[in-house]
Amino acid sequence: MNLPQTIFFDAVGTLFDVRGTVGEIYAQFARQAGVRVDPQQLNTAFIQSFRTAPRAAFANASPQALLRLEYEWWRAVACQSFETAGALSGLEDFDAFFQPLFTYFETAAPWILYPETLKSLERVKALGIETAIISNFDSRLYAVLQALELDSWFQSITLSTQIGAAKPDPAIFEAALEKHRVLPTQAWHVGDSWTEDYAGATAAGLRGVWLNRKGAQPDLGAQAMVAARLEISDLAALEGILQAQS
């Protein structure tokens, strides 16, 4: 197999991650508002709310409408998280509480860059391969990448909220491929989610690379995919795989 022309990367959990947990950050903001809530319980509630929420994908929304839809989507997830954790009643004006919390996540403060990210991107670039992002995050990702000094590394950014389709839907991969004018067989996608990144990319015809930092077990419902998977434990391992293809 030849080197790919383009490698797409997931964002959160792949290039960078939350500093601590979302529950800890939510609980910190709640304390500032005079509400005490257990961070671990709140994080469990957040994960449940996030996973059961409808996909954050808004087709044909104007830029102004998109920002409103993104805000309302995350507000609903956060509101449900606090309600499940039994702390919503203390936050009487939830909009006033949530606005600065929402804005906080577009700064560098709540994020931590994986130590191998920059060097790995540099090595991919040195091989003449274009790099890009496919993410189910929202428009704040542009500000986050800039804050983390990652924005100059990517030729394109494809977001579910802007495309109207979220990973693992093939449509978001197709939209990203079109930006680079490459065939699925000419592109790889690297991400930490077995379902959204690896299985989604593979189903769309790309070469999926599963970034399995925690040694998780894949979905055994796809035996052929499991047997043929390309798996790495960190981004640094990507270089060895690429060298083997050259």
Rank of each mutant, 00 (worst) to 15 (best):
F29V: 12
L42E: 00
H180I: 05
P168D: 00
L220F: 08
Q186M: 11
L42I: 04
A27K: 13
A126E: 10
V22F: 10
V226D: 00
V18Q: 04
D10N: 00
R207S: 15
S160D: 01
A78R: 08
Y114T: 10
V226A: 10
F8G: 05
W210C: 11
A244P: 01
G200P: 04
A61G: 01
V35H: 00
V12A: 12
G34W: 04
T202H: 12
E196A: 08
R19E: 14
A216N: 10
Q28P: 05
Q223I: 11
T6V: 15
W73F: 15
L230N: 14
R31C: 11
L206Y: 13
S49T: 02
G208W: 00
T107P: 00
E149C: 05
S156N: 04
D10K: 02
W153F: 12
A11F: 01
Y198T: 05
D197V: 09
S120G: 01
A30M: 06
G20F: 13
A76T: 14
S49F: 05
T161F: 00
A222H: 13
R75P: 09
F46G: 01
E130R: 14
T117G: 07
S152Y: 11
Q245I: 14
S152F: 05
T84C: 06
A228T: 15
F154K: 05
T107S: 15
S49L: 07
T84A: 13
A33Q: 15
A143V: 00
E231W: 07
P168Q: 01
A176E: 01
E24Q: 15
E72M: 09
F102E: 09
V144D: 08
T103A: 15
I172R: 06
A132R: 01
D138I: 03
E116A: 09
